[in-house]
């Protein structure tokens, strides 16, 4: 079996290329995605694809609400758009189309329509201040009708994007700026290597299935994207202290793999949930509430959430460092639930 080591940005690009070759209904739509001499979107994912697919790389005006609606219309007519925003924050401009139209259209039709729209949005606090940093996962969790995936590795990025494009339902993929491995002028400082060996064969990662990234007996840590990588680092640190951490990467938030998480909770009895968003009403709140409702007999310590404070993302590096959960903050939360 041939393998290629690819960054997330490269892997997504090859995945999109493959899907567009496989199925002529697939097309990309977004801002600055198909300009020769441009960047291939904000993080190089679509770089050069316009050379092969000149008719299927729809470079839009700066009209987020507009082009998400266009994607919906095209999807209802049988095409399979991949719509992306440069920063997840910009998707807030398209919330009518995403939440009122894309998410609800199949349901309102009584199940007669299919809406195969794939959406992509980069998240993460990365030195850009308050309006290019936000994680939108908590905004979309209460919007039934959209599946949500969050790949932390290039392998998962490919497998989940294939699943999303081939799925007849709307899927939002959140990607992390520090995990892309974008190169050249679009390289990010503070980036983490999330590259993977990508098999040649046509594999998928099913939407709705978590992965145990590290097995452990003492504490279950649940995290996606950058926070998953930091949780693994924290686990390595804690191993030296004799704490055996299990790290679960849900990969999909909707639907959520409760079986994997609950099996882990049965084993460890202790839970730490890590996220990059403000703590209030975050993804962690939803996971914690469900575990409190359904798993209380198995819990031996209070559930702990590690999250950003309830403020916008700040700019100055010392404040940003304080804002985003660090390896040490994750480790400290694990120590607390372990010593409860």
């Amino acid at each position: 079996m041939t393998m290629k080591r690819l960054s997330i940005a490269e892997a997504l690009r090859e995945c999109i290329r493959g899907e567009m070759r496989r199925d002529e209904r697939v097309f990309c739509i977004g801002e600055d995605i198909a300009v020769r001499g441009g960047w291939g979107g904000a993080f190089t994912v679509t770089l050069g694809l316009e050379k092969e697919f000149s008719d299927r790389m729809i470079n839009t005006p700066i009209s987020e609400n507009g082009f998400f609606g266009v994607a919906l219309g095209a999807a209802m007519m049988g095409l399979r758009p991949i719509a992306d925003v440069q920063y997840a924050d910009f998707a807030l401009l398209a919330m009518d189309q995403i939440v009122n139209q894309i998410a609800k259209m199949r349901y309102m039709s009584g199940g007669k329509l299919t809406v195969p729209v794939t959406m992509r949005a980069p998240v993460g606090v990365t030195g850009r201040g308050a309006q290019h940093s936000q994680s939108l996962e908590p905004f979309l969790l209460p919007a039934p009708g959209i599946k949500i995936v969050c790949p932390a590795t290039a392998y998962d990025a490919v497998g989940l994007l294939r699943s999303a494009v081939r799925c007849d339902d709307p899927v939002m993929m959140f990607e992390h700026k520090l995990l892309y491995g974008s190169k050249g002028a679009r390289a990010e400082s503070g980036a983490i290597d999330a590259s993977s060996e990508i098999p040649e064969e046509d594999y998928v990662v099913p939407i709705g299935r978590a992965v145990v990234r590290r097995e452990g007996a003492d504490v279950t840590v649940i995290a996606t994207l950058l926070m998953m990588h930091r949780s693994l680092q924290a686990a390595a640190l804690l191993e030296q202290e004799g704490i055996d951490v299990e790290v679960i990467d849900p990969r999909s938030l909707v639907p959520f793999d409760w079986d994997t998480v609950k099996a882990s909770v049965v084993k460890t009895g202790r839970v730490v949930i890590v996220e990059e968003s403000p703590k209030r009403n975050g993804v962690g709140a939803e996971i914690a509430a469900t575990l409190a409702e359904e798993m209380i007999d198995h819990l031996t310590a209070p559930i702990k959430r590690v999250a950003a404070p309830n403020t916008p993302a700040p700019f100055a590096p010392p404040m940003e460092e304080y804002y985003v959960p660090s390896v040490e903050r994750i480790a400290e939360a694990v120590r607390q639930v372990t010593s409860y």
């Binding site: 507009g66 609606g69 266009v70 919906l72 219309g73 095209a74 007519m77 095409l79 189309q97």
Partner: peptide, 15 residues
């Protein structure tokens, strides 16, 4: 809300 959607329907027809 229907204005971008109709535009997308038309885009699909054209494509």
């Amino acid at each position: 809300g229907g204005i971008p959607v109709a535009t997308g329907i038309a885009l699909a027809f054209k494509m």
